[in-house]
Simulated assay, not measured.
Amino acid sequence: MSKKGILLVNLGSPKSTDVKDVKDYLDEFLMDEKVIDYRWFFRSLLVQGIILNTRPPKSAAAYKTVWTDEGSPLIVITQKIQRKLQKLVEVPVEIGMRYAEPSIETGIRKLTEQGVTEIVLFPLYPQYAMSTTETVVDKAEEVRKKHFPQVKINYVQPFYNRDIYIDCLTESIREKLPENFDALQFSYHGVPERHIYKTDPTKTCNLNDCCSRETNPSHQFCYRHQCFKTTELVIEKLNIPKEKTVISFQSRLGKDKWMEPYTDETLENLPKKGVKNLAIVCPAFVSDCLETLEEISVEGKEEFLHAGGENFHYIPCLNDEDRWIDVVKTLCEEKLNEFYLV
């Protein structure tokens, strides 16, 4: 009989806060054609000729502000999810990162060393994007074909609109939401607008009214639609007025047109509109990391308060909350059961 296993995959993190380790990590991350989708020559000029000569010291300093005694928050939290999930399922559970170690190859190898031949791979991203889910699947398939051709992989699909996830996220936000707030901001990781078109095989996306349509062929591939849908469903469950919520996109890089509105500009403008008490959540992430702990809860807070805001409340990600582990278990078991049906 085939033996089954689970591989949880997250973004990844530098090995340490040393500038060299951060540079190595950024090199692998930014040279991924799914992240910076220029031709290799121009991508290399940008990344290795410019970014890696200026950004690593700044990024290393940022990582130092969030680093824990155990290591990178992203890695540590993913390990906690792994350990909790392992107690709930009877199959082996390992983790892999898209960039750096433990890599996807390392995770698959650990499973195969335990006799696993059928793997449920779970990209830990609620919404589909070229630079997240798509690159994880492409990398996993590359690794499988090259090193583990005997292994079968079943992928957990984006779960941005699944009831179990929406209920989980809503309850987590509800428990942490302050009693008095003027607005609840949903900040998602941004992507260049051209990525939305590139990931749409139906060619029906126009980055305009199609996101709000009940059905559209591009929805299953459209990051923008999925972010808006997650927000809509959570707002409905929270039962708060839509006009009391804001959606924005963070972490843009370079001068290309990225999805709008931008989080930093939104944080600067909200106090001018009378928002003095702000709560903010980042539903593109299931685990707290540099983009949430430093970019939002430190830099974002400074931007908001400097612009005239009075109270800034960051709502943590789901991390290793038990209810989130239950969601992970359910989504993985659905894919495990598909192996039995083949």
Rank of each mutant, 00 (worst) to 15 (best):
L46W: 01
T54H: 05
A61W: 11
I50Q: 04
P56N: 04
I50S: 04
W40R: 10
V47L: 01
I50G: 04
V66A: 03
V66Y: 01
T65H: 11
G49K: 04
W40N: 15
S44T: 11
K58S: 09
L46F: 00
A62E: 01
L74Y: 00
Q86D: 10
T54W: 03
R39W: 11
W40S: 07
K58E: 13
Y38N: 06
T54P: 01
I81A: 10
G71H: 04
G49S: 02
R39L: 14
P56W: 00
L74T: 09
I77K: 06
I50M: 04
K58Q: 15
L74F: 00
R43C: 09
L46S: 03
A62V: 05
K58F: 07
Q86P: 11
W67D: 06
S44M: 11
K64G: 07
I50L: 04
Q82K: 13
V47R: 02
W40P: 05
L88T: 08
Q79L: 12
F42G: 08
T78A: 04
R83V: 11
Q48D: 05
V76F: 07
T78S: 08
G71V: 08
K87D: 06
I81K: 12
L52T: 08
G71M: 02
T68C: 13
V76A: 15
K64Q: 07
S72N: 05
I51M: 01
K84G: 15
L85N: 03
L88P: 04
I75T: 10
V47H: 00
Y38M: 10
K58L: 08
A62L: 00
A60W: 00
S72D: 01
P57W: 03
S72G: 03
T68I: 15
A61E: 15
L88Q: 15
Y38I: 10
W67Q: 10
A61H: 12
I77W: 02
G71E: 01
L52A: 04
Q82P: 05
K80D: 15
Q79V: 13
A60I: 05
P56S: 08
V66F: 01
T65W: 08
A62W: 00
Q79K: 10
I81Q: 13
S59T: 12
L45Q: 14
I81F: 08
G49C: 01
K80E: 11
L46H: 03
K87S: 07
S59Q: 06
K58N: 11
F42Q: 07
Y38L: 15
F42W: 08
L45V: 14
G49N: 01
P57I: 14
T65M: 09
V76D: 05
L85V: 13
S44L: 09
P73C: 06
L85Y: 03
L52D: 00
F41Q: 07
G49I: 03
P57K: 07
V66S: 02
K84M: 08
L88F: 09
A61M: 09
